[in-house]
Computed example of a mutant assay.
Amino acid sequence: MKPTTLRAVMAALRKPETGCPWDLKQDHQSLARYLREEAAEVLDALAAHVPGDAGREAHLCEELGDLWLQIAFHAQLAADRGAWDLHDVEAGIVAKLVRRHPHVFAEVAVAGAEEVLTNWAAIKREEKGLHGEEPRLLEGIPASLSPLEEALEIGRRCAKVGFEWPDLEGVLDKVKEEVAELQAESDPIRVEEEFGDVLFSLMQWARKKGVDPDVALRRQMLRFRARFAHVEDDARAAGGWEARDLDQMEAAWQAAKKKGAP
């Protein structure tokens, strides 16, 4: 009888002697790369997702399943050594969510989303047993975050203690200021520093505006790929890239935009 749950499938794949040779060879470290890859593919699926579009919905569902597989795989490794299993993973996160949402599961009143975040942070500190002097504000940021994610997290943490622009225009002014400083530089080291300042300021503008820069960049690259495909098709029809100069390629690009290429 074939297994019908992911937990049962993983147990069968990892069963000594009768399981899959490849699956039996894996450990937490060897699986790390697949976890990163699957998480990235979920983010790509989210960037391309269109609610209600059957194909995009199915793609997102499939990619989330692939990510879930990685979680189940790690849980099975732990179960094999008698440490914990997939049920413990679920029980742990359920308990944490209930504990951190007293306004839903207990009699705690909140005025809005901001107060929810404040309570969440306080409960989290209590869970970690932080008494007396707290660690520095920017300590404990996961090293595995991408530079974009780390820049956003730094901004979020500083904003929580009031180190923040009072309005969106202030952030945009800072972006313009940093761009002007970048344009004025010629020394390679200073150019790199000023470019970093521009990127960091843009991340904070996105955070304050409510734009996810990772999603925005992924969608921009999808649009670029689609439009550049038109430029490439035009060049192929003309006999190759050598038959097209920059003005002609730009014309093909603009034509693609007018046609509504993503």
Rank of each mutant, 00 (worst) to 15 (best):
15 K>P: 01
215 V>M: 10
249 M>D: 08
25 K>Q: 15
150 E>S: 05
67 L>H: 07
100 R>T: 07
27 D>L: 04
51 P>V: 02
61 C>Q: 15
201 S>E: 13
107 E>F: 13
167 D>N: 15
192 E>F: 14
173 D>T: 00
112 G>D: 04
7 R>F: 01
148 L>T: 02
77 L>T: 01
199 L>E: 12
45 A>R: 13
222 L>E: 07
245 D>Q: 11
101 H>S: 05
91 A>Y: 02
11 A>P: 06
12 A>N: 05
197 D>S: 11
3 P>T: 13
30 S>L: 14
246 L>N: 01
168 L>Q: 08
13 L>R: 02
119 N>V: 08
126 E>V: 06
213 P>V: 08
30 S>W: 08
148 L>R: 11
6 L>Q: 05
159 A>I: 06
154 I>D: 03
73 F>H: 09
3 P>F: 15
39 A>N: 02
123 I>T: 00
149 E>W: 06
23 D>G: 00
21 P>M: 09
60 L>M: 10
187 D>P: 02
42 V>T: 08
130 L>V: 00
221 M>E: 08
15 K>C: 06
257 K>C: 11
101 H>T: 09
88 D>C: 03
23 D>L: 02
47 A>R: 01
223 R>H: 09
80 D>A: 13
176 K>P: 00
89 V>N: 10
91 A>F: 02
146 S>E: 09
117 L>D: 15
182 L>H: 03
63 E>K: 10
149 E>T: 01
260 G>M: 05
